[in-house]
């Protein structure tokens, strides 16, 4: 059983329709820890030492956030800037994260179709997530396929429940090593493996 750290970056999780249910579905799982950045660091003063220790204690990292302006909410960028230090996460002596797995779990307002060459946003989700992919590469981590919920605002209660359960199954499967290692990287969305 591997240990999963879900790093949550949502400035108003209590008001969210989808993310709140996703997080609730996984927060009580054994060996899964939810680390709510906005709740822990409302003034953006991130405790670097604590965050680095958490990273070292876990095997799989999930960056869980809504897609804001084709990227993550500000606090997660701040987290990366501060926590992924030289000689910790990268550089000659920065090998502490080597071998860990990391993925994005994101929600987007727009449907899958708008995230395509012909859609309004012109690029795919995978293209927007390239900075995360390369961050993982530089830190020696394996970047897994993202868990993506498109058109989150259009989901009704049933839809939200469906995705929440699916997320829970995905996290459990990740934790218990149930996925085919190759597929985890090659599949388009992690959702598709469930």
């Amino acid at each position: 059983m591997e240990k999963i750290l879900i790093i949550l970056a949502h400035p108003a999780i209590h008001k969210s329709r989808v993310n709140k249910d996703l997080i609730l579905a996984v927060s009580d799982l054994e060996n899964v820890l939810v680390n709510d950045l906005y709740e822990n660091y409302p003034d953006f003063f991130i405790n670097v030492k604590r965050e680095q220790e958490l990273l070292q204690e876990h095997d799989i990292i999930v960056w869980h956030h809504p897609l804001y302006w084709y990227s993550c909410p500000a606090i997660l960028k701040e987290w990366m800037d501060l926590v992924l230090e030289h000689d910790f996460a990268y550089g000659r002596q920065g090998t502490r994260l080597h071998g860990k797995k990391v993925l994005n779990a994101i929600t987007t307002g727009g449907s899958a179709e708008v995230y395509s060459e012909k859609g309004k946003n012109h690029f795919t989700i995978h293209q927007f997530l390239i900075p995360f992919l390369q961050t993982a590469n530089l830190c020696g981590m394996q970047y897994l396929a993202p868990y993506v919920i498109h058109g989150s605002h259009m989901l009704n209660k049933r839809g939200v429940d469906f995705y929440a359960q699916k997320y829970k199954k995905a996290i459990i499967a990740l934790r218990d090593g149930k996925f085919n290692a190759g597929q985890l990287v090659t599949t388009s969305y992690l959702n598709d493996l469930i």
Binding site: P66, Y68, E113
Partner: peptide, 26 residues
Amino acid sequence: DTDYAWDITAMNTDENSDKNPGIQNH
């Protein structure tokens, strides 16, 4: 305070959006 935050307009102008949303893409 909103879940769909910045791309709310993308939602409104999303021509491909299904009138009966439910589980849309998967």
